[in-house]
């Protein structure tokens, strides 16, 4: 026996082993094969090792290393094969790995909250922060401070729910404009999300309580050009690349006032039932802050200008998810809410 012959015997074993190991079908066969390959009593490797004393002394170290490397390699293959076989043979050897995973309950933010979050994220990038205000609001903040003429049909635009004293349930989030202007010096760049309330019958398209997102910018040198550019930027981010259209409108607290439409996502402007054949879908009301509003917060309207907008996220949620009836948003059926997990 020479060193070369010894190493050749090792290499032969290493070459044969993988196929033999892979071919083993059960644990009994595996045990038999292990004994045949590396078993202490009569394994092939043991037989090879038994020839080691026949080698010249100076070759034995190298031969031992070669034999050991083969041993480690074969044993690793055997171990891997064993765990595969035992996994397959537990509980009678019929584990079906296609069975479903263990689940957890999924949680979900409300679809309207998800829309508000997306809007918030876009305006955050533009430096807006979040302001809040109460839902039971003084009539002054809800109407007079916002330049609503007393006892005028403009009040009919907001069917109001009245509370004791001089409080109402706020009919829009715009009171937060005045509260913020009274509390912080310009520059102001805020978003005010929150619930508002109207005396509207609860039907497929109206709810007495619904979410609104208000935006307000007040500083020196703010113009209608900022309004158009910022809201168009928002529309492009929120709806994907789109086109906007501004048209005259009326809100007591803005002048000039403008509605912003985006190109109808269904027909891309050619007209369909969704957009009532106009090609456009109304998204938000906006305008330059009326100087009377700036003055009711004690600010100098010759120094400061600003713009504001308000939009209803529920309408977007209904359109986006194809929900036909707004009341579904309020029912709180778990099977509905679970659909919005992400």
């Amino acid at each position: 026996m020479t060193l070369d012959e010894f190493k050749a015997a090792c290499a032969a074993l290493a070459a044969d082993a993988p196929a033999q190991i892979a071919a083993v079908a059960d644990l009994d066969a595996w045990t038999a094969l292990r004994n045949a390959l590396v078993g202490r009593a009569s394994g092939r490797l043991t037989d090879i090792m038994a020839t080691l004393p026949q080698l010249p002394k100076e070759d034995r170290r190298e031969a031992g290393q070669a034999a050991n490397a083969v041993k480690l390699e074969v044993e690793a293959l055997l171990t891997a094969r064993e765990s595969g076989l035992s996994a397959a043979t537990k509980s009678g050897g019929d584990l079906d790995l296609t069975m479903p995973a263990r689940r957890r309950w999924v949680g979900a933010a409300h679809p309207v909250s998800q829309v508000i979050d997306e809007i918030t994220e876009i305006f955050r990038e533009l430096g807006f922060t979040i302001a809040l205000g109460p839902e039971a609001e003084h009539t002054w903040y809800n109407f007079q401070a916002l330049n609503f003429p007393d006892d005028h049909p403009a009040m009919d635009l907001h069917d109001t729910l009245y509370l004791q004293g001089d409080l109402v349930l706020r009919t829009h989030t715009s009171p937060v404009q005045v509260r913020t202007l009274q509390q912080y010096a310009p520059p102001i760049r805020i978003l005010a999300p929150g619930n508002v309330h109207r005396r509207d019958p609860f039907d497929a398209s109206h709810a007495p309580t619904f979410a609104q997102v208000e935006g307000l910018v007040v500083d020196e040198g703010i113009t209608f050009a900022d309004l158009k550019a910022t809201l168009t930027h928002f529309a492009n981010r929120f709806f994907g690349s789109t086109r906007t259209r501004f048209r005259p409108s009326y809100f007591p607290f803005t002048e000039p006032s403008a509605e912003m439409d985006v190109l109808c996502g269904v027909c891309k402007g050619s007209g369909c039932s969704v957009c009532k054949n106009s090609g456009w879908v109304e998204i938000l009301g906006s305008g330059m802050v009326h100087p009377a509003v700036i003055e009711s917060a004690g600010l100098d309207s010759t120094k400061y200008t600003g713009w504001a907008f308000g939009l209803g996220p529920a309408r977007t949620a209904l359109a986006r998810h194809g929900i036909p009836d707004i009341r579904i948003l309020y029912d709180s059926d778990v099977r509905f809410l679970e659909q919005f997990a992400r």
Partner: peptide, 13 residues
């Protein structure tokens, strides 16, 4: 009317 995105000062709120 013009449509111009201008640099804005950060808000105080």
């Amino acid at each position: 009317l013009p449509d111009r995105l201008t640099g804005a000062r950060p808000g105080n709120v």
